[in-house]
């Protein structure tokens, strides 16, 4: 039973990583940049949800919606102010800027909400489910997280495969200049990508803090790095890759914690990443590029 319980916890944690990893991978796919501030958008999302329920007394559901709206705007603003002016700069300059934005968000949160941890109340209004005479307990948070992850995956796949804008975004991610020659507004595509990624970050933040309820200004950084790892693990730029990478990473983390060592679990996660990348440098579902002259 512990095995199944660990597996469920792993899938649930992995689903959060997957939702965050989608933001990394989509932004990388389209803007070819690593948005290291993405993890901190998660934290902002969680704080917003916390404030809306605690201080304004709205229902958890409303808080998620407001948190998504705030993060969407935040994501678009970050892109416009910090990254867009560097569109033609070296990727190193963009990377350093992203790290700068990350610290900026953490410090802004410190200034607004202070360093004392806030106790996040779960947004899931149901209790846990006990199976097999209480030997297997599944938290409602896990179920909601996994369901949210599946729904997001389906919605994003439909969006990028079927909608005109989604197809246009795939075109931009493959070849910006050619996409522009088709009449696709590249700036709008990039903004929409940041908007979607940040809205997903808000959802991830709320789900993460519902399961692990301690909220501090650095809450987002470790999950952010893990999710980035997950995106690379699955093949950066690939949406199914981010999902697969996220879920596998969550499972590996929980199993290492449970069967090997709590302290070593992060090291094991990264060791697995290194091994995968040695064998398949593009990640598990990384895109092969076929080119014909």
């Amino acid at each position: 039973m512990t095995f199944i319980s660990n597996l469920i916890n792993g899938i649930s944690l992995g689903s959060v990583y997957a939702i965050i990893a989608l933001g990394y991978t989509m932004v990388y796919g389209i803007a070819k940049m690593l948005n290291f501030a993405h993890g901190d958008v998660i934290m902002v999302g969680a704080y917003i949800s916390f404030c809306v329920t605690t201080y304004l007394g709205f229902s958890p559901f409303v808080s998620v919606v407001i948190s998504m709206i705030v993060c969407t705007i935040l994501g678009i603003v970050i892109e416009r102010l910090a990254y867009k002016p560097l569109r033609k700069a070296s990727s190193l300059a963009v990377l350093i800027t992203a790290i700068g934005v990350s610290y900026f968000l953490q410090n802004a949160a410190l200034l607004i909400w202070g360093s004392a941890p806030k106790t996040f109340t779960s947004i899931v209004p149901f209790g846990s489910i006990a199976l097999f005479n209480g030997q297997l307990i599944i938290t409602a948070e896990s179920i909601v997280t996994v369901l949210a992850c599946i729904l997001i995956m389906i919605a994003l796949t439909l969006f990028t495969r079927k909608s005109k804008m989604g197809k246009g975004m795939r075109a931009v991610s493959e070849d910006k200049a050619a996409a522009e020659l088709m009449g696709i507004n590249v700036n709008v595509s990039i903004s929409v990508t940041f908007a979607i990624g940040s809205a997903l970050a808000a959802i991830a933040g709320v789900l993460l803090c519902s399961a692990y309820p301690v909220l501090i200004p650095t809450t987002g950084s470790m999950p952010g790095i893990k999710a980035f790892t997950a995106a690379v693990f699955g093949g950066i730029g690939s949406i199914p890759g981010a999902m697969l990478g996220g879920v596998l990473l969550g499972i590996i983390e929980i199993f290492s914690k449970s069967y090997i060592s709590t302290n070593l679990s992060d090291a094991i996660v990264f060791a697995v990443l290194i091994i995968v990348l040695l064998i398949k440098p593009t990640g598990l579902l990384g895109k092969k590029i076929t080119e014909k002259v």
Partner: peptide, 25 residues
């Protein structure tokens, strides 16, 4: 309309999707 050097079709999209991109506007 500009057919760029090296064709620059969207290699990871289908033939149909490439044509749809041509009709984006």
């Amino acid at each position: 309309a500009h057919v760029p050097e090296g064709r620059r079709i969207f290699l990871q999209m289908t033939v149909l999707e490439n044509l749809e991109m041509g009709a984006y506007v």
